[in-house]
């Protein structure tokens, strides 16, 4: 069981002239089978938070790590853009991130490709896939290392509504099945309410604004009263943020 632990996290990017504060004193924890959405206006440090958790960036102050039984957990990361190696086939892209290259691993990679509906494309170059298909490879790649925790940075924001809805359902059922800890960044409050059991709201300047628990049964129908009410509540929180910002 993985534990995401963020303590007094601060991140400053040194800039020319003046520095940019991306995150300011952020703390929260999440562990076990939970789906945490992180929402907030553009530039509030959501991607930076995931990058630090993934070990791509280092914190300026504080700590942020994902552990399992005291040691570093295996983490899958779905980026805002697919980030596939353009010179490797889809299958080789899947294998690129694997710790070892056994037949068993290959078989596992194929299984996750099939799960996102791309088993026929395993030999294709990324340039031969549509944007949505590339993003699906990115998702399959994250799942295929059988991670303890999953980081997702607006994985569906570049897709059309129908594809996004299909993938959201797939993601939800994969989460239910595999019982992973998921950190899910999104702009879309509806998406957050539909998928998560917790929503963390960041505000401009990288401060944690609110940490909401959603106690609603799955599957959630947007037309359902309770779901709509929760969505309205989060949106109201956002409007207040806007008032503060301006």
């Amino acid at each position: 069981m993985a534990t995401v632990s963020v303590q007094n996290l601060r991140k400053v990017f040194p800039g020319e002239g003046r520095d940019v504060v991306a995150l300011e004193d952020v703390s929260f924890e999440a562990s076990g089978h939970t789906f945490v959405s992180i929402v907030g206006p553009s530039g509030c440090g959501k991607s930076t938070l995931l990058n630090i958790l993934a070990g791509v960036e280092t914190p300026t102050e504080g700590t942020a790590d994902i552990t399992k039984d005291g040691s570093r957990a295996r983490v899958g990361y779905v980026f805002q853009a697919p980030r596939l190696l353009p010179w490797r086939s889809v299958m080789d892209n899947m294998l690129f991130v694997q710790a070892e290259q056994t037949d068993q691993v290959r078989e596992r990679a194929s299984r996750y490709l099939a799960m996102v509906g791309l088993s026929e494309q395993h030999k294709a170059w990324p340039a031969q896939l549509s944007g949505g298909m590339q993003q699906r490879v990115g998702i399959a790649r994250a799942f295929s290392i059988e991670p303890d925790a999953l980081l997702m940075d607006e994985p569906f924001s570049h897709l059309d509504a129908i594809t996004a809805r299909g993938l959201r359902r797939e993601l939800h059922s994969m989460w239910m099945e595999t019982k992973k800890t998921v950190l899910f960044v999104t702009h879309d409050v509806g998406e957050a309410v539909e998928l998560s059991d917790r929503i963390v709201i960041l505000e401009k300047g990288g401060k944690l604004r609110k940490d909401l628990s959603l106690d609603l049964p799955f599957p959630r129908d947007p037309a359902d009263d309770k779901v709509a009410l929760t969505k309205a509540e989060v949106l109201r929180e956002f409007e207040e943020l806007d008032l503060i910002a301006t």
């Binding site: 400053v12 040194p14 002239g17 003046r18 520095d19 504060v21 300026t60 300047g205």
Partner: peptide, 12 residues
Amino acid sequence: MDTTASSGSVVR
């Protein structure tokens, strides 16, 4: 949000 001084000197 005045962080210029601290991080500047840290780097150097």
